[in-house]
Design a binder for these strands. Structure first.
Lengths: 301, 301
DNA sequence: AGAATGGATAGGCATTTCCTATGGGACTGT
DNA sequence: ACAGTCCCATAGGAAATGCCTATCCATTCT
């Protein structure tokens, strides 16, 4: 039994004749005859009585008609539900962020997005990069905002660059280098370092920058968040490396831009490659990239 | 969009893979790929995400799945409803009878039929033949029990012979011929006749019999039912012709078999040719013919 | 790294649907 | 009563479509 057979059946029942139905459905009359015969054969019963040159539904055909109609209209409903679902911007977005970005970067963007698409609830998951990637693979997270490039080989993920921000040395105010306009990591090579705990990718970023500067940092403290580290810098316990977006006015602390080449952190939005995004998710992604294209200088400088 | 595509879609969604679904549906994996591609193209949206070598429903696919399932199960429901409807002996029968048969012939048959098929309500319409035929054409009546053969040319109707009954002369008891074992119409040729009103086909039967006997009946009274006529015969107002089944014991009335050749009335069940009968209707028809095959002698003699 | 698994693609075969042309039965009008 | 018309069924051929096997490519497992 096929949909076109049901269509033909309904057309004939409605118009009261094969020829009339043929004109309506833009199909030749023999084709209708043929398909109805097939349908009747499959059902094992006649749907129409051919009496003289008129056609009338049998009792069985009369019983079958509403079901055929229902099937066809349900089909249309399903079709338009898909069309609706693929054009309308509703549904939810689940976005993942790493802790060293989350508090500084996302809140204003979330606010503007929610104002623009009030129907679209956004969930935020804050985790370190490998866990975010795992959740992306399982489909729990739609989009992740992380430091790029990712270490993963292959084309498993697709990333959209957002911003690239400078790194700063965080020094106690009374530190000898605190008044400089800029400095290099080499100049900090004997300082005690305060860094993020292992697992945070910004730790890798900082360590990699040190390695490029041939500096082996003496790490004397590890924490999970910048604010703890900054407090300790204020207390004169050591120095640290901080991305631009994490700078915050503190009395006992001075930030000096690092002059080393590539002493930057790049942030990008990442999606699982091959995964189709709903309209909302797509909208969120473009919201991220578009909003940042308008103010790249302020953040990336 | 076709049913097999929906089937494939559900199979893939259920089994979580094209190859697994291919094994289940006994279709090759490339065919599934192909058909799903077609479906996705028609819908203008992806139903599955192909990530690595795993397959997962998209948000849209997840929304589409219950609808696809519903369509398939509704299809099965429709199919089995038809199967049910064409095998079960339920539903109604509408049977037409002419007035000169109705009171004598149908009641016992209706009783036994209703006892045999309690689920099948039978409607009886009592009308003269042409009106019955008209209602058959319009589909209002399924089966008619009338005098056969019909005058209609062509094969518009199909008739099943039921019984052939003798005709009797109805005479007042004191009539000169009332004691005879049999007589011919010729012997009644000057008698005043009491006949059915025009339109009743038994009137035609009687008149035709007279004509064959070269008798021109003097009709002095017309009525719509035999009992009125018989009452008048009892009162000695004239004679009449009565079919065997209408004989009823009356004090002032004597019935004498007519010896004329073909002084009989044939009764048959008639259906519109080309019209398919439901199982109940078929059952009613066979009930009529079968019941009468068992006692033809008593009625036809 | 090599083998195995899973989906996409290509090309050919078989089925099926559709068409045009034609047949046959039944109604219509002269 | 007759030809003409209307309508559905049938026949045969052309086009489309679904399905298959073989193969490719990427990912995953050993």
């Amino acid at each position: 039994m096929e949909f076109h057979q049901l269509r033909y059946f309904c057309a004939i029942a409605d118009s009261g004749g094969f020829s009339r139905a043929a004109r309506l459905t833009h199909v030749s009359q023999p084709s209708l005859s043929q398909q109805i015969h097939k349908l009747e054969e499959e059902l094992g019963a006649q749907l129409f009585d051919r009496i003289g040159r008129t056609v009338r539904l049998t009792e069985l055909g009369r019983a079958f008609l509403p079901r055929a109609r229902a099937l066809l209209s349900d089909l249309e409903a399903a079709r338009s539900a898909v069309a609706e679902g693929s054009t309308s911007i509703t549904g939810s977005v689940c976005v993942g962020v790493i802790p060293t970005i989350a508090p500084y970067f996302l809140p204003p963007l979330l606010a503007t997005f929610s104002r623009k698409y009030p129907q679209a609830p956004v969930t935020v998951v804050e985790e370190i990069t490998p866990l975010l990637l795992e959740r992306m693979r399982s489909g729990a997270i739609d989009i992740a905002v992380v430091a790029v490039p990712l270490q993963t080989r292959g084309h498993e993920f697709q990333s959209f660059p957002l911003i690239e921000e400078k790194l700063y040395a965080a020094l106690p105010r009374q530190h000898a280098l605190a008044k400089r306009r800029s400095l290099t990591l080499g100049e900090l090579h004997d300082e005690p370092f305060l860094l993020l705990r292992d697992g945070h990718c910004f730790r890798e970023t900082a360590v990699a920058a040190c390695k490029r500067a041939r500096v082996q940092p003496k790490i004397i403290f590890e924490s999970g968040q910048f604010s703890s580290i900054l407090s300790m810098v204020c207390s004169g316990l050591g120095v640290s490396i901080i991305p631009a977006m994490a700078l915050e006015k503190r009395n006992g602390c001075q930030f000096v831009p690092l002059a080393d080449g590539r002493a930057t952190r790049a942030i990008g939005a990442v999606t699982l490659n091959g995964r189709s995004l709903s309209r909302v998710q797509q909208a969120f992604l473009t919201h991220l990239t578009a909003k940042l294209a308008s103010k790249p200088t302020r953040l990336a400088r």
